[in-house]
Design a binder for these strands. Structure first.
Ligand SMILES: [Mn+2]
Ligand SMILES: [Mn+2]
Ligand SMILES: [Zn+2]
Ligand SMILES: [Zn+2]
Lengths: 147, 147
DNA sequence: TCTTGTTTAGGAATCATTCCTATGTAGCAA
DNA sequence: TTGCTACATAGGAATGATTCCTAAACAAGA
């Protein structure tokens, strides 16, 4: 993941998106992260360089990028939304202790066939596997384990 | 799913849970549903028979039942929480139009092996496959399709 | 029956996200 | 280069699901 500012502007133009400093910075922070950050995480990361940045703009920008297909929302749990600029087909493993989300790129998981027992007229567009468990550090300090 | 009131009281006692009319009614409504209802759905369903019921109690009860292992939260999207009393290992298919959640019982999905590329000390406790797409009715009225 | 810890109802609080709106600006065309 | 216009931004208010708080009710065991 090493996109230059020019690459990003290129990408924005290709999608018919205006290129603004805030938008570029937010997308860049997301592309360079593998942590599946929240809107607030991104706000905290970009804020120092753009002190006027509003959290609202982060939400708006993420919405725009999502509609443009540059960003996906990772739907883990019903708590706060987390975002991912990694568009290659992949899956996730979530630590129930620290809520870390790791990418799972195992190609075997991308070859699941349509499941049996579906209504015939249901059309599946994609699927995602979510593994849950506890990472090493969280296993060693079980005090913090969530229910 | 045809649990009598006695069966439910039995089950509660087996888990060390007190048996109250509200708790029984809420669990019964959930057991008899395959719609993965929200707390408010359950409140609306049980309310007519218990006019004094508080939505708060529904949340509290669902929390108790979840901790007791009688109910699972189905983590689809980060919007409102939906609940499931079906404890047999199964997966879900979600219609992105009407947000319906259907059970997927295909046994092949319960035999996925641990994915490659995980940190060695990560311990996976379970996983869930979420298929997304559009059901027949939603495909035929694309006006309502969500982004 | 008495006691006690749990459960309930209802109201207030929280907090992520969305809505509203005035101002700013990117990108295009003259 | 300049001006226009639609889109973007900031900031404050509103929303809505969920949680917190507290007093009263009650299930279950002694
Ligand atoms: Mn990812
Ligand atoms: Mn289910
Ligand atoms: Zn962890
Ligand atoms: Zn549908």
């Amino acid at each position: 993941m090493n996109l230059s500012l020019d690459d990003i502007q290129q990408k924005f133009r290709g999608c018919g998106l205006k290129s603004t400093p805030q938008r570029t910075a937010i997308y860049r922070a997301l592309v360079h992260s593998t942590a599946h950050p929240t809107a607030e995480d991104l706000f905290a990361q970009v804020s120092p360089t753009y002190p006027m940045l509003s959290l609202n703009t982060v939400y708006y920008t993420l919405g725009v990028l999502r509609k443009a297909g540059l960003v996906q929302e990772v739907n883990i749990g019903h708590d706060r939304a987390r975002f991912d600029a990694n568009l290659s087909p992949h899956h996730h493993v979530i630590c129930l202790g620290c809520r870390t989300i790791l990418d799972v790129m195992d190609p075997r998981l991308n070859r699941l066939t349509s499941p049996s027992g579906l209504p015939k007229d249901f059309e599946i567009t994609n699927y995602q596997v979510a593994f849950r468990g506890y990472c090493g550090p969280c296993r060693r300090s079980p005090l913090l384990m969530a229910t």
